[in-house]
Nucleic acid binder design. Structure first.
Length: 939
RNA sequence: GCGCGCUUAGCUCAGUGGUAGAGCAUUGUCUUGACGUGACAAGGGUCGGGGGUUCGAUUCCCUUAGCGCGCACCA
């Protein structure tokens, strides 16, 4: 029972059991007000010496895809322990927080929600509007995450918070991209990539998850051979028969030999290819290949310079090569193809239950279809001269590769990975690493900083945009609807046309439009007026922007005009009657455009004009033939074409009109820069001065960081890529230590997932048992690199411990030590000296354990000492002594107080809230906040 | 197929070349200057199996089984 009578010397809060819910917000406020998470403040207030050794960690940025889970909580707990411990040891300590835009993951969450709630796709909204939705979602996630990080008691320096997609990080991305491009390590090429037909984007090798699937395995007659496959629907174009050169069964066939075989859509000529990729022991030992849709087959094709033909398009639809099956989705085509082969007598047999691995996108679960596509890659094997290197074994100015850089950073000992078995895993990954595809066809992310000259297609890297010009077709008119030529005649916008115009305005309103220039025909005027209503820019009219003058054809329906004027309407430079030729229109519109650009090129401009006008203008600007322009899709109502006017003109042709690559970068490209892009690279990296305070000097003070702490599951995704990027950009390592923690699982060892309903929410645990308990439950028993099985019981257990700490403190304070630790300890009883020595021995053990990342052992040691030694034995034995009074009691009082002091400090990194709450009640304290008290190592 | 782990008390896990530890759980006792979110005490394991090195192995080596993970392959 709680004794409610007030004992002497007892601060009021101790009259009640420890209440985490009440004290945590209060303590959090104290910390945040103090600003001590910011090392500059610590120096300013004299807590840390200006020349102290630094200690830094950058927080692995949580994805803004929702809320934090227990894995994040573990990460925060571990890092906060390291940070608080080092801060208390007097180091200049920085823990830099941030969040990750997580490109595909975030976009996919928003797309799913959009489809579910509004039945719309991202294309229905358009790039700008869709991005606005994603940003709103990301912002909301960010705010939730920040709240959770704070609730955990994580002493991060919010003043330095970063986002992987903010301006500073964008500059870092562009800078890194350009220098890698200049070094020849980033290239654009047609290679086989992992294509997600649902999300319509490439996916990197590491983002693929193989899912076991059982399917029937079919054997078909292919000429004199029998071939096996799970996917007959991909085999239309198979015209190479691959067999192992040593396969005795087929030695009569020679490499390059041709033979005619009956196949799905009739006879084809097949060629024998001898290649060691064929596995003699698998199936018949003979296979046909589909190079456009299989990595291995593609490699074979490359080796032997074979034809590569696309069979399936980007949406998983069969192409014309499939004959009667063209236009079918592959999933539907399989049974049909099978049936045809059966009817042709080519099906030999079917084996059921063939187990194979199907590649899926780990970010959305859709089956991956390999495709050959023009994409951007990072070449990991290409040699380049590294200007500056601090990595042992790689000399400045020497030739190296990214792979070598990654390997050396670890095998030289510059980076130590704990637990060390992961070093082997890391090398294994490097050995199998292929070029990294970095371009994604999604919208949320860093745009690829490459512009293509409209005129000559030359690439410009990381250019500066002077202004953006948007060329817009007017909204739908009544005559558009009726398919009537308007030309210089006119008709009002339809209701739909007005909606379209308003949608354009919405899309453009964040682009700081300085001027709207419109054709002076009514439909454009009306469109421009609607746009101006939202974006508030001046409108000028220019009659040179008018539509093609269709002369006598005006007012006629398309069919009627075609009958009367036939091919003249479509011709480039021929006319009949008073119809303006396309050539004339092109000359007129382009002349007008260049004139406008000369006057208004410095501001962002919207041009509202007409379908044919836009088409011919683009033909002119893109410097393409009329024939090429004609096959491009027609310009639809309210369609927007955006062009960038660059500050420096094209190196090749001098033009200044460019189009930026529409793709975005793999999210790991920007996360790879995280350890230094957050510390001021590149803008203040050069001028940063070691020893000077302030964020502008962070790069010199805190890079390389001390520890990168994260789950072992993202060793490849992220850790390896940071090593790559830092090695290349800086010639150094991003961190000296990698500490990998295990994954948090449920009590049965299963992964926590929504569908299993076994998710334990950190906030709920904090609410019920306190942040200290939640933290400890993730630390004790969690040995490095091993998964933690978490149950609510465990968390509850540590709540009891928090209360124990509270009560020990209450007892010691009640004993009335007066708040002073006796210095020197010389006049203490012998036994008391021994007790104090014992506590110091514990400090040593705990410090060593933390230094070697054995937080589990450290926590266990303190737990055991505090509860079973200090409380159960030392305090119990002291009771009689204190009662007896005299010198011995006096000496013991000081001893108890001293040990309590030590325990609070030792416990603080692990349980910051209770310990700080107790500290606040101490009658005299060495520092206002325990957070910045001195670690007792030299007490 | 290649590689990496794990197997110790009912559960979750530490640990060490000298015949084993913690937390939780279980059982019993206890209102003693804080704490029943407590204290004291008890029960419970021949450290997966086999072999080797050693005076001695749970700890080192080999082998075997089960479980888990990573990578590659999968026509």
């Amino acid at each position: 029972m709680w004794r409610m009578e007030k004992a002497p010397n007892i601060p009021e809060p101790f009259l009640k059991p420890y209440n985490s819910k009440e004290s945590e917000p209060r303590i959090l406020e104290l910390w945040e007000k103090s600003g001590f998470a910011n090392p500059d403040v610590c120096i300013e207030k004299g807590v840390t010496a200006a020349d102290a050794e630094s200690y830094s960690i950058v927080l692995p940025p949580p994805n803004v895809t929702g809320t934090l889970h227990m894995g994040h909580a573990a990460m925060l707990a571990i890092q906060d322990i390291l940070i608080r411990y080092n801060r208390m040891r007097g180091k200049k300590t920085l823990w830099l927080p941030g969040t990750d835009h997580a490109a595909i993951a975030t976009q996919s969450v928003v797309e799913k929600d959009l489809l579910k709630t509004e039945k719309k796709t991202r294309h229905d909204l358009g790039r700008d509007e869709f991005l606005k939705r994603v940003e709103a979602f990301a912002q909301a996630s960010h705010d939730t995450i920040v709240g959770q990080v704070r609730a955990m008691g994580a002493s991060v320096d919010w003043s330095r918070e970063a986002y992987t997609l903010d301006e500073a990080r964008n500059l870092a991305v562009r800078t890194a991209f350009k220098s890698m491009y200049d070094a020849g390590l980033i290239y654009r090429g047609n290679r086989i990539v992992n294509w997600d037909p649902k999300m319509q984007t490439t996916v990197s090798d590491d983002e693929i998850e193989y899912v076991e699937q059982k399917d029937p395995f079919y054997y078909f007659k292919y000429g004199p051979f029998t071939i096996g496959t799970v996917r007959p629907e991909t085999k239309f174009g198979d015209k190479y028969i691959v067999m192992h050169p040593d396969d005795a069964r087929y030695k009569e066939y020679k490499h390059g030999q041709k033979l005619e075989v009956e196949w799905i859509n009739g006879k084809i000529t097949a060629t024998i290819v001898k290649d060691e990729a064929a596995d003699m022991s698998f199936g018949s030992g003979v296979m046909t290949i589909t190079p456009a849709h299989s990595g291995i087959d593609f490699d074979i094709a490359q080796r032997h310079k074979l034809d590569v033909e696309q069979i399936i398009n980007e949406r998983g639809i069969l192409l014309p090569i499939a004959g009667e099956f063209a236009g079918q989705h592959i999933k539907k085509a399989r049974p049909m193809v099978l049936e045809k082969l059966r009817q042709k007598g080519l099906l030999v047999k079917v084996e059921g239950g063939y187990v194979h691995n199907v590649a899926t996108n780990s970010r959305g679960g859709e089956t991956i279809e390999p495709q050959i596509k023009l994409q951007w890659f990072v070449d990991v094997n290409k040699k380049f001269a590294i200007p500056h290197s601090e990595i042992p074994g790689i000399a400045s100015g020497s030739e190296t590769t990214l792979k070598e850089l990654m390997r050396r950073a670890v095998d030289s000992g510059a980076i130590k990975i704990a637990p060390d078995r992961f070093e082997k895993v890391y090398y294994n990954w490097i050995d199998n690493l292929r070029d990294w595809c970095i371009s994604r066809q999604i919208w949320y992310g860093h745009r690829i900083p490459v512009w293509y000259c409209l005129n000559c297609k030359h690439e410009a890297m990381d250019a500066e945009v002077k202004s953006k010009w948007f060329i817009v077709r007017h909204g739908e008119t009544e005559k558009n609807l009726k398919l009537i030529y308007q030309g210089h005649s006119d008709s009002p916008l339809t209701a739909q046309g007005r909606i379209q115009a308003a949608a354009v305005a919405e899309r453009l309103k964040n682009h700081d439009i300085g001027l709207i220039i419109s054709s002076d025909l009514g439909r454009c005027k009306e469109t421009a007026g609607i746009i101006a209503g939202t974006i508030d820019a001046e409108i000028v009219y220019d009659q040179e922007l008018r539509e093609r003058n269709f002369g006598d054809a005006e007012g006629m329906s398309f069919d009627e005009a075609k009958e009367k004027f036939g091919s003249y309407l479509d011709a480039y430079d021929e006319t009949k009657g008073n119809i303006e030729t396309s050539k004339r229109l092109e000359e007129r519109i382009s002349k007008a455009f260049h004139k406008l650009k000369a006057t208004h090129g410095h501001k962002n401009v919207v041009i509202v004009t007409h379908g044919s006008a836009i088409r011919l203008l683009l033909k002119h600007l893109q410097n393409i033939s009329y024939e090429e322009a004609r096959v491009k899709p027609k310009v639809s109502n309210s369609e927007v074409f955006s062009l960038d006017i660059l500050k420096s003109p094209c190196e090749k042709c001098g033009g200044d009109l460019f189009e930026q690559d529409s793709d975005t970068l793999d999210t790991w490209f920007s996360s790879g820069l995280w350890t230094f892009s957050t510390l001021g690279w590149p803008y203040s990296a050069q001028s940063a001065t070691k020893g000077k305070p302030g964020p502008e000097n962070d790069f010199a003070n805190y890079h390389p960081t001390d520890v990168l702490e994260t789950g072992y599951d993202i060793l490849f995704f992220w850790v390896a890529r940071m090593i790559l990027m830092t090695g290349f950009c800086l010639g150094t390592v991003p961190f000296r230590n990698v500490y990998l923690h295990g994954l948090v699982r449920d009590a049965q060892g299963r992964k926590m997932s929504k569908s299993l309903g076994n998710v334990i929410d950190p906030l709920t645990m904090i609410e019920k048992y306190g942040a200290d308990a939640a933290r400890l439950s993730l630390i004790v028993g969690a040995s490095p690199g091993n998964d933690v099985k978490l149950s609510e019981d465990r968390v509850r257990g540590y709540k009891h411990f928090a209360n124990k700490v509270w009560n020990i403190s209450r007892f010691v304070l009640e004993a009335g030590a007066g708040g002073e630790i006796r210095h020197p300890m010389s006049n203490l009883e012998k036994i008391d000296k021994k007790l104090i020595d014992e506590a110091h021995a514990i400090v040593k053990t705990v410090s060593e354990n933390i230094d070697s990342f054995r937080l589990d052992l450290a926590a266990d040691t303190i737990y055991h000492f505090v509860w079973h030694r200090f409380a159960d034995e030392i305090i119990e034995e002291s009771k009689a002594l204190l009662k007896a009074g005299g010198e011995a009691a006096e000496s013991r009082r000081h001893t108890l107080y001293s040990i309590l002091h030590t325990c609070l400090k030792l416990l603080h990194p692990f349980m910051p809230f209770v310990t700080e709450a107790v500290w606040q009640e101490l009658p005299k304290k060495e520092s206002e906040l325990l957070m910045v008290a001195k670690w007792p190592i030299d007490v």
